[in-house]
Design a protein around this nucleic acid. Sequence first.
RNA 1: GCCGGGAUGGCGGAACUGGUAGACGCACCGGACUCAAAAUCCGGCGAUGGCGACAUCGUGAGGGUUCGAUUCCCUCUCCCGGCACCA
Length: 872
Amino acid sequence: MRAPHEVFGSVMQERYEPAVVEPAAQRDWDSRGAFAVAEDPTRPKYYCLCMFPYPSGRLHMGHVRNYTIGDVLARYMRMQGYNVLQPMGWDAFGLPAENAAMANGVPPARWTYDNIAYMKKQLKSLGFGIDWSREVATCRPEYYRWNQWLFLRMLERGIAYRTTGVVNWDPVDQTVLANEQVIDGRGWRTGAIVEKREIPMYYLRITDHAQDLLDALDRLPGWPERVRLMQENWIGRSEGLEIEFEIEGAAEPLPIYTTRPDTLCGVTYMAVAAEHPLAQRAAEGNPDIQAFLAECQRTGVTEAALETMEKRGMPLGVHAIHPITGGRIPVWVANFVLMGYGTGAVMAVPAHDQRDWEFARRYGLRIHQVIQPADGSLAKLDEGAWVERGTLINSGQFDGLDFDEAFDAYAKLFEAQGRGRRRVNFRLRDWGISRQRYWGCPIPLIHCGACGVQPVPDDQLPVVLPEELVPDGSGNPLARHRAFLDCSCPKCGAPARRETDTMDTFVDSSWYFFRYACADNDRAMVDERARYWLPVDQYIGGIEHAILHLLYSRFWTRVMRELGLTDVAEPFTNLLTQGMVLNEIYYRKPAEGRVAYFNPADVDVQVDETGVRVGAVLRSDGAPVESGGIGTMSKSKNNGVDPQALVERYGADTARLFMMFAAPPEQSLEWSDEGVDGAFRFMKRLWKAVHQHVSAGPAPALDPAALDDGLRALRRQVHETIAKVTDDYGRRRTFNTAIAAVMELMNALGRAETAAPQARAVVQEALDSVVLLLAPVVPHACHALWRALGHEEPVVDARWPVADPAALQRQSVEVVVQVNGKLRGRVTVPVDADASAVQAAALADPNVQRYVEGRELRKFVYVPGKLANLVV
RNA sequence: GCCGGGAUGGCGGAACUGGUAGACGCACCGGACUCAAAAUCCGGCGAUGGCGACAUCGUGAGGGUUCGAUUCCCUCUCCCGGCACCA
């Protein structure tokens, strides 16, 4: 083996060749096990985690962006002295594998394992500093047995329970469809109108933790405000009243929940869900209602579909008795009321609720105002509902009360009568985890004819999913696979049938970050090592996971804590949500047939002489294509860029540099081939600068006292850049501005006169700093350059540079001068100049004088070292 | 429909706590080098007016607060993410 200095050092090659540099750096890291980490109580730990990928086949740019952000932070924190863990794994169960199986006849398992092998190679070629010894794949029995084990613990404690749930049913394929497989209300393969169907499912009681999941958001200062807000709204805590309405001719009252009890006297109708017993009973012997209920069956189950559909209803011929006025109120069935939400019934106040108002208008129902604006102004109820709080009117003894007083008065009244109570309600629903699919973690239950549903005993775990089956789109192949199905009842020993439902893949991803800490333990879900590494210090992933995945993980962590498996309250201390990767969309719409999309790589953009775009043509035929604007990279729009091709052409460092430079991580990132060229040019300039410097031999030691003004200014910029980049990486997480600052420094270095010995010393310090500052972003090139600059220790293990306060000193600063807020001049003043000195200097400026002359100075504003404003 | 976010030159973006709008990069234009091209290097580059010094306008649209607003408040438009079985 060659010593590093024979490869680089003084014989550093002149040309920047990533195809040589990158594999060499990767081999060096591999041979030294640079990223394998162990628990070390003597050093502060830093657990840097990126959301694991679904093994879809190849990496896409969103992955590259995600993992580059993580790798930059991991390498930066390592240089800051932390014991850094950066693991990786595979979210390997899920629908796409079944779809691929249907298309190609390949078992999901094989497709998945092949994809993992390929994508792992891609991740390695991008140079991410991952500890691969901790890799997990959720489709492996070693992993999912702990899903099963914890599920059984939840079942024992009543955290998991069985009830019915609503699913999309394709009547032709006789199968349950995912929401994404329902297109415009029809099954994606059969085109059949999808029906709602109730089936038994297992649920986890996440609602038991609703209050805590909400309260703890305040203790997550490291999460973006917008994610906390989205979770808060998702949990949706509300305080209201549950009120029972008597139903004419029925023994059972109709309970409803309202957050606006102050509007109670404005109720002019009630509405129940199609599945509500009142509606079902009214339908008996009434074909019109039956037809309406059947129609309600044929809608999607998503909230978006329900909210956007036409609000329709039908009177049931049943009446409720108003609990205050004693008046008769018609009860309707309405398609927008959901059986699963609250009590499946609502009171309707058209005067003060917009949806009720529209419904009342449509069906000619009464609109009765009971709230008036507190300022006495008039509510225009013929234009829409008046939904603000106000003062009660038309409410008998309650007239004149405000919202809080009315809430209280009604609550006391109903509580005294036993016909209602105060209630806190959450929008959050329990987590249904049953999926009628093959490629997922089997739910470890056994159905016995005599003993009912029995849990699989712990010593028989895991229930292993057979890996050779190929789904065909009509139901779950497990249900036809005798070797899986047949078993004996653990209680009575009689022949029994295994449960064929599998778990939601969100279960797999709710705790994988624990397993990385102890992936090799085959006797326990987690061990002591998880106590060392958890919680995750920095979690990085797409904003699209802001609610579900993160909420489920927070819940699962709470369950693990209840079971004594962890002491961690919250799994992710800091969260960074990265934006999408976008690209141009080009298409042609033929007179007939489907729109054809063209990959931007095959399209030439035409610009006029000022650089403005005037059109685009397809390179292969030279004919014009239409621009469809900018959109997320996707298969359907054919606008993806293959990371592999990019790495092969420019190298991983250029790909990483472009991604980090083009936009701050939280914003969406627009792809640009020209931008990649620019990043590559910068890499070549950096390489050349170091090459030129080291070719002239070793630089002398730096003597800061011996520098002239020019060199002192250059050295100040070096240290200003160190301070800025440190702040940008560490606090702001804006890698684009950090890279821009380094580019500015390189530009200044290129302009400087560097022949003199002390100039060479400053350049050495500058280049050392630049290589250290860029090492997290472009680690391969910096690995080589650091050694070329004469350092023995590899740059991954180098210490992060610290700005020298002495080098940052300045004697004078430029202050901009405004007159009445408009920029009129600039003056240079000593750094320690006081306001009066700056005012005098400002008034001495000829251009400033033009605007101040002959007018009275009313006010003088001075922002030290920056700005002076003369108000005249 | 509901919840969250965004909009700044020809383009991606910068301006961090209300204080110089346009850093850095791309594209484009001009120049150097070259037989030539590519590569590289140097310079210019928001709009309008002016020879120029400068001036006026300008951060999706409209209004407000302030000595001063891309930044804070109100109204609106468009785009993106999520809406519980895509991951």
